[in-house]
């Protein structure tokens, strides 16, 4: 394979990566610079993203390309623009119309997602058979007891007394095992990100650089 010096993009990416890593030693101006560039570029990215992918193909292009067939798009266009009236103090109340439609729609969708897509199937999924082979029976019992006790822990916010006390306590134990597992996975996830950056630095920047300069 022919070796090449890292390209301009790789150099930029490598420097920004190192600037951010420098924070591990202590806060410094290079990190602050990288952080500001990140903030600016992220906001700019949103603008380009929304324009190229949604506003242009779904709104402007059909509206201005064939107005007579797509005039109804003026309605979401108007609601979208009205949202920005919140920055005009005297007319801010009109922006509530748009916000009401936006929030209202997602509230309606969310209600169905929760009731129909979570509570019903998850409850059904907990109604497990007990006339199964031993290993599965143990597993099914663990799930049934676990779900019920966790819910008891969540839903009886008054002091746990009588039979509720050991039940809620068991619920906490289930949560702790699950949070522990989540912690284990979180460690794995965070290390994955570090691996990604180090692999970039080593394979895409340092290796070609060292190999070209020292003739590897």
């Amino acid at each position: 394979m022919e070796l090449q010096l890292p390209g301009f993009g790789q150099w930029i990416a490598a420097f920004f990566t190192l600037f951010v890593f420098s924070f591990l030693y202590k806060d410094n101006i290079l990190y602050r610079f990288a952080e500001s560039v990140f903030a600016g570029v992220s906001f700019g990215y949103y603008i380009g993203l929304a324009y190229i992918n949604t506003l242009e193909p779904n709104l402007f292009s059909p509206l201005f390309g064939d107005f007579s067939s797509n005039w109804s798009l003026l309605i979401p266009f108007a609601f979208g623009v009205l949202l920005y009236l919140r920055y005009v103090p005297k007319l801010a109340w009109i922006s509530q119309w748009s916000l009401a439609v936006y929030i209202g729609y997602y509230i309606g969708v969310n209600l169905l997602q929760r009731l129909h897509g979570e509570i019903l199937p998850q409850t059904k999924g907990t109604m497990l058979p007990l006339n199964v082979e031993f290993g599965q029976l143990i597993g099914n019992l663990v799930v049934i007891v676990g779900v019920i006790t966790v819910l008891i822990y969540f839903f009886f916010s008054s002091p746990h007394r009588g039979p509720l006390k050991p039940a809620a306590r068991t619920g906490i134990y289930f949560l702790m095992i699950s949070f522990g597992a989540s912690f284990g996975y979180t460690v794995m996830g965070r290390i994955s990100l570090l691996i990604g950056r180090l692999t970039f630095l080593v394979d895409e920047w340092a290796r070609p650089l060292v190999a070209t300069v020292f003739g590897g």
């Binding site: 998850q122 999924g125 907990t126 143990i138 597993g139 663990v142 799930v143 049934i144 007891v145 676990g146 779900v147 006790t149 966790v150 819910l151 822990y153 969540f154 619920g171 289930f174 949560l175 095992i177 699950s178 949070f179 597992a181």
Partner: peptide, 10 residues
Amino acid sequence: FPNTAAQRGI
């Protein structure tokens, strides 16, 4: 099993 039970409760 235990993780599913806890996550399902949540």
